[in-house]
Design a binder for these strands. Structure first.
Lengths: 259, 259
DNA sequence: CATGTAATTTAGTCGAGCCTAAACCTTTGG
DNA sequence: CCAAAGGTTTAGGCTCGACTAAATTACATG
């Protein structure tokens, strides 16, 4: 052991913009395999040229691999950093919702700012206070402190065959009015939803949630992730649970295939 | 009423450094009547020339009045901004201590970062959760949401005459090891302390706190603010209070005399 | 009252992140 | 297969907040 390989030493602390870039790249990479400059730019509301500049810096510090004109991918180091920020964000959202009574459509912005300022200690205290939740209020899985996440790709509600019932798992936290509407029709993580009918040509979709039969557009349905309920009829609501759904644990993290 | 005097409209949001400068200037101004460039510099660990630069900007935006070579003072606008940040800081400290179990010697740094990121809504939710405390864990008064603070200048423990008893009110939150020591000898806000003896020539000071008689240096005693107990014998501890002392309300805010 | 010292300000730079405009690849459609 | 269209990068600038070094002011003291 010459150099003790202090590999994941805490590194110099990342700036706020850097954390935001890494988070955005992580998400885009998950979705498309690599993050395009213009997608990062619009995710961060920044000019494409600015992205190129930042990417150069990130690459020089070993957070991303960049093939000019071809997009970026996170290195292991970059991935670790991104997941750390995402963990903070999701624990903050969980805490704000469960403990401080924030409505689920308004936690995102708050968490977005706090995630850069909160110490590891604070985050872990919050996680402990919550009993180490595995998902945030929108159903997004919370990475563990050492960078494991469930990255399973679930189906969207739009893809659910007519007649089938599924459990609502997750929705993006970024659209407050969508979230308010979903709360209205009781389509929240943990809820059971049945595909009653789907009009042709991307027409309206009729669901059953509890006793109600809301009709929603295909765009909305495409934003909601679900998991088919094939097995047990229904194990009832899992507990006298609070406002905040502690989702069932899902499959373990999985390293991205390096193609 | 022509122009509705939207005087304290929220203004453009302040940057982190600006909030830090205003806070530092506020504190120094309270202590010395005006803030000297070099004092601001050392409070913020920044070069004096940097302070001059920032002060120029703050003055041009109406947050401070600057007389070159003579120091700065906050304008009403600057004072409002400073107190807003201070309120955030102190509520955060209170919350972290009372709800999340932070020890009082370690809340400062965390609050220092969060105070720039937390929204008004978050701060008010925390304040509500705590029952709108009037002082933080170190005894510092919490400004109200509309900028009122108790600015009474209390005596230090070092000034307490021999034989007199006082109530410990406050100590700076910035020195963790001092805070740990104070906790050791039970010298915390609300505690009763008696001046037993004071050795001459700034010698050691003997106190009585409960049944113990700790001996402390004059430097320490000078950092602790107290209030003489002249009136009632002692109204007992005010409640089955938590770890966090909700100090008694003190006299109202008072505008600084403009000399 | 002159002068040395300490505090303050000016002058000139720098890096981080952002911008616009212009040049440059890649891809795709004719 | 060639050219237009998009996406990407380069070039050149800007602001904020910091720095050092050098000039300037205020003040204490002999």
């Amino acid at each position: 052991m010459t150099t003790p390989a202090r590999d994941h030493a805490s590194s110099p602390p990342l700036t706020e913009p850097v954390e935001d870039y890494l988070k955005a790249i992580y998400t885009l990479e998950r979705r498309f395999g690599a993050a395009a400059t213009s997608d990062v730019a619009s995710a961060l509301a920044v000019a494409p040229a600015s992205v190129t500049g930042m990417i150069r810096r990130l690459a020089s510090q070993g957070y991303v691999d960049h093939v000019p004109y071809r997009g970026v991918q996170l290195t292991a180091r970059g991935r670790r950093a991104a997941l750390r920020t995402i963990r903070r964000h999701r624990i903050l959202e969980s805490y704000l919702t469960a403990v401080l009574g924030y409505p689920w459509d308004r936690v995102h912005d708050e968490a977005e700012r706090l995630e850069h300022a909160a110490s590891d200690e604070l985050i872990e205290r919050m996680a402990t206070a919550l009993g180490h939740p595995t998902a945030d209020p929108h159903g997004a899985p919370i990475p563990t402190a050492d960078g494991e996440v469930d990255e399973t790709a679930y189906r969207t509600l739009a893809e659910l065959p007519v007649g089938e019932t599924a459990r609502m798992l997750r929705v993006s936290d970024k659209n407050p009015s969508l979230l308010r509407y979903l709360a209205d029709i009781a389509l929240q993580p943990g809820a059971e939803v049945t595909m009653v009918a789907r009009a042709p040509f991307d027409g309206p979709i009729t669901l059953r949630i509890g006793d109600a039969e809301p009709v929603v557009g295909p765009n909305l349905a495409a934003q909601v992730l679900v998991e088919s309920i094939t097995s047990s009829p229904l194990p009832v609501a899992d507990a006298p649970s609070a406002t905040f759904p502690v989702s069932t644990p899902r499959s373990r993290a999985r390293k991205p295939t390096s193609r």
